[in-house]
């Protein structure tokens, strides 16, 4: 047993390199390297490329060799209606957030508080659609709302006049966004509401607070980080959404991402598309940095210590 402490072994151990406790210090940083490399090559560099392209000659591909503000000037040109696309995207995103807050809150409350053992199953039901491509799901709605589709056919079979025109309107686009982004609002909200200790609510009730007062004074402020993440995530994703307006909205409105896409594809004007993407990225980026800058992610994601 004692040979462990005999000096040759000690020498070997020393030669074997740094020890457990010592390695722990930098272990975290070393584990983060692959992720950082991926983010640098796959996120930062592409964004940088977009920025670089946005300063290139319009309709050209001579990135890094020319510098012009022409693309930005074009966007600001009053003759250009691209600002309408921005307005639609921002407006639809805001409405999506507002509607989803109302739609998701009761469900999030149920998942965090009421459903108990079945909460896991209900969560899976809400997660699963994420694994089905959104255009399949949106197309299902087309089949539902279209003339002669599921809704129309059912109503007519019941002797009613049939479904109103809904498809290919801005409202349908909004509907699609609310539908697609529901999980992105729901799960951060559940995380937020789960952070409110049950005892606090019981204590507030014990001290005479009514249901509305408990909600307003205790539950809402404590769940706010989660709710805000949900709103931010939904907004950011909805501002960049395009499938909804193409599939359900029938291009009745052109959203900003579609303008970017057109510039990249049909128009073959990459510098102009890049300039639009830079502006969109700035909107999204500023909001995100402000939104998640102050978050305590350890607390939200449930670190015990």
């Amino acid at each position: 047993m004692n040979e462990i402490v005999a000096s040759p072994t000690i020498a070997q151990a020393r030669a074997a390199g740094p020890r457990f406790g010592e390695r722990m210090l930098s272990a975290g940083a070393r584990c983060a390297i692959p992720v950082y490399v991926l983010l640098a090559l796959g996120f930062l560099a592409p964004l940088f490329a977009v920025v670089a392209y946005s300063f290139a000659t319009p309709r050209g591909f001579d990135v890094f060799r020319t510098f012009t503000l022409e693309n930005y000037r074009q966007i600001l040109d009053p003759a250009n209606t691209v600002w309408m696309s921005f307005a639609w995207s921002l407006g639809l995103a805001l409405l999506t957030v507002a509607i989803l807050t109302l739609v998701a809150y009761p469900i999030a409350y149920g998942l965090a508080r009421l459903f108990g053992r079945s909460a896991g199953l209900v969560s899976v039901l809400f997660v699963f659609p994420l694994f089905v491509s959104e255009n399949i799901r949106l197309y299902g709605w087309v089949l539902f709302f279209i003339k002669g589709g599921v809704l129309d056919g059912t109503l007519k079979a019941m002797g009613l006049p049939g479904a109103p025109e809904f498809l290919f309107t801005p409202a349908a686009t909004l509907f699609g966004m609310v539908y697609v982004y529901l999980p992105f609002m729901l799960f951060p909200m559940v995380l937020g509401l789960s952070m409110v200790p049950r005892d606090l609510i019981d204590a507030a009730r014990d001290m005479g607070a009514g249901r509305l007062q408990i909600w307003h004074e205790v539950e809402l402020p404590l769940a706010m980080p989660g709710i805000l993440i949900g709103m931010l995530l939904t907004f950011v994703l909805a501002v960049g959404a395009v499938a909804e307006s193409k599939v359900l909205g029938g291009q009745s409105v052109i959203v900003i991402t579609q303008d970017i896409e057109i510039a990249f594809t049909y128009a073959q004007n990459w510098p102009f598309g890049s300039a639009l993407a830079v502006i969109l990225t700035l909107i999204v980026g500023v909001l995100t940095v402000l939104g998640i800058g102050r978050l305590d992610l350890d607390r939200i994601l449930g670190r015990r210590s």
Binding site: I4, V5, A16, R19
Partner: peptide, 16 residues
């Protein structure tokens, strides 16, 4: 020191 041998650097899996 363990029985007179300095063990400052000895990792835990080699300490008795």
């Amino acid at each position: 020191a363990l029985r007179g041998q300095v063990i400052n650097d000895l990792p835990p899996n080699r300490r008795p």
